[in-house]
Design a protein around this nucleic acid. Structure first.
Lengths: 334, 334
DNA sequence: CTATTTTACGAAACCGGTTTCGTAAATAAA
DNA sequence: TTTATTTACGAAACCGGTTTCGTAAAATAG
């Protein structure tokens, strides 16, 4: 059992309330008494129980990050951004991994209605609908902010990148390099971000006179092997693919693996480009052209917004922040 | 304000204690009453406040992971391993990033004595002494388990890899490939793991008749640019370096960058090998030979141990788990 | 010097659960 | 039928803080 405020009160023959007030530096307490209390608290190495007071003022100084996975450079950098703000504000970060399971995500959110955290930052998993009732209800109970992967139709704050524009630019880049038979590797379920990226892709194709854009979109699986298989089949088909866009990081890696397996040379046979935050993209064979999202900044922006909401300084329902991605041209699209 | 047990009691004209017991399926309550309570709780979407009861039975179902950073494949995979166990046990995971700052780590640990979490899994940052008093004291207050980077002299559980042996093997591998002028890139401060790895390296050199092993150890900086600079200088020195071992992942990446900058060919001019969990090591130019730690399993083992401790089924002071690393030979050491 | 205000502190309620203990009613044992 | 034991529930204390409110003593005003 740790040191409590009552132990200090007893030792000093003071009332608990006096000690509590002294520690909170209340004007009701004399400087002399405060000194005594602080000194004794320090001697006993008193650390207040965070959840005791939390009951009364219903605030835990905990926030939750809910995301598909942590072994992904975008997400881990976003966590860094969030953590940088949280640490500065004296908040604690709880991490919840959904592993791209809608069911798991929903049960986690259900649990978070309990008051374990004061607010939530979330990047939804595949399979979550854009008007998810679970997310909508949670957003009414406590501050909820979407970052990157959002539920468009849930009325709360969103922190995004310019996915449509970035994808349009990336596609144009491939076209300018001479690609005509470009494949857009899509994720299994409709993620908000890949929807945007696909739209940008299709618009670019259309604007450059490439017909039947839909034919260029390939649905991949969540299962790694299955997905790898799909990509290989596509690369081997008759009308030769000369460009590939990976809509998420994983697919870029799989594309490289698939090209190696099919004996295709990047960028000679096929040019590859991906949405990815891999720091070592430049060290790959060959260096990979990437659309890099400002992951750290997005996390930071989302967290900053959350703390504003906790201070009731903003109405989350109308907040929407869009940060720009950057295209890094490298050898894979030379 | 959420739904409380008192609200349910009032609605049903029962005592709070009755509702509490009913919800916990106490034998003191009749099946009929339980049914009523459960039904009403469900209708009201009651979610118990986790910290209310936590006051009485001093348990939060929260555990903390304290680590240097999350944007690192070893750590993010370890988190996955920990999370897999925690989720299964119904525990919640708090993540604390130290960013390799001893001061920050210590202040975090100090805060964790408050009862915010039931136990701690930690991989210490550089600069933490092997007999850190802060860590030792915390280990007395609540279950603390070191994983990977440990404080040898703090008497509590440790989950490690066979760093000495793995490094010995890795060095032998380089020697067998003809390397004589092998450089061991060490981290700035003495981490337990790099100490072990350095020892294994030196032992292998000695066993193969290479004198003055210490001359082969190069201290790198925590600062990325500074470290890169150091590596480049080493690569350019007169008695040509023909092998490099990166003791941590970051250094491997920097070595690649440095070789590119110096115009050195891997593996022709210099063979490179690193302790790294990068999944895409095989896609680098050239594919990197790595010593891979069982990150996920280590996290899992550490978490499992923690839950055993929470169930008072083990004495952490004597626990020590060592898992094997695996050497993946690739082109960088061909 | 009395009346009023301020200062400094204590008693107790409260937050939302859990747990102990007491007890009326129902059931079983004698 | 009387006594002993269960059964099913309620009252209240408790966990460790915060906060409200009441009040002696000290300071200030009149």
């Amino acid at each position: 059992m740790g040191i409590t405020i009552r132990k200090i009160a007893k030792d000093l023959k003071l009332a608990v309330s006096t000690v509590s007030k002294a520690l909170r530096d209340s004007h009701e307490i004399s400087d002399e008494t405060k000194r005594l209390v602080f000194e004794h608290a320090r001697k006993l190495q008193y650390v207040p129980n965070p959840y005791a007071g939390s009951l009364k003022n219903r605030t835990t100084r905990n926030i939750a990050i809910v995301l598909p996975e942590v072994a992904d450079t975008f997400f881990s950098n976003a966590i860094n951004g969030i953590d940088s703000v949280a640490q500065a504000k004296g908040y604690h970060v709880m991490v919840y991994l959904t592993h791209e399971s809608r069911e798991r995500e929903e049960s986690i959110l259900e649990e978070l209605r309990s008051g374990r955290v004061d607010g939530i930052l979330i990047s939804v998993s595949v399979g979550v609908k854009r008007d998810s009732a679970v997310h909508a209800r949670l957003a009414q109970d406590l501050p909820l902010i979407f970052f990157d992967r959002v539920c468009d139709e849930v009325a709360t704050a969103k922190v995004l990148t310019d996915d449509f524009e970035a994808s349009y630019k990336a596609t144009t880049h491939l076209i300018s390099k001479g690609c005509r038979e470009i494949i857009f590797l899509d994720t299994a379920a409709g993620l908000s971000i890949t929807d945007q990226r696909r739209s940008g892709f299709l618009k670019a194709l259309a604007d450059h006179g490439i017909k039947n854009g839909d034919r260029h979109v390939v649905q991949c699986s969540e299962d790694e092997n299955e997905s790898l298989d799909t990509i290989q089949k596509v690369l081997r088909r008759k009308n030769k693919v000369d460009g590939v866009i990976g809509s998420v990081e994983k697919l870029a890696i799989q594309t490289y693996t698939a090209c190696h397996a099919c004996g295709l040379s990047i960028p000679r046979d096929v040019k590859v480009l991906a949405f990815s935050n891999l720091q070592i993209a430049a060290l790959l064979a060959p260096p990979l052209t990437t659309v890099v999202q400002p992951a750290f900044e997005m996390g930071k922006a989302a967290a900053t917004l959350l703390f504003k909401a906790l201070a009731r300084k903003v109405d989350l329902r109308t907040e929407r922040i869009v940060l720009p991605s950057v295209l890094h041209e490298r050898e894979s699209t030379q």
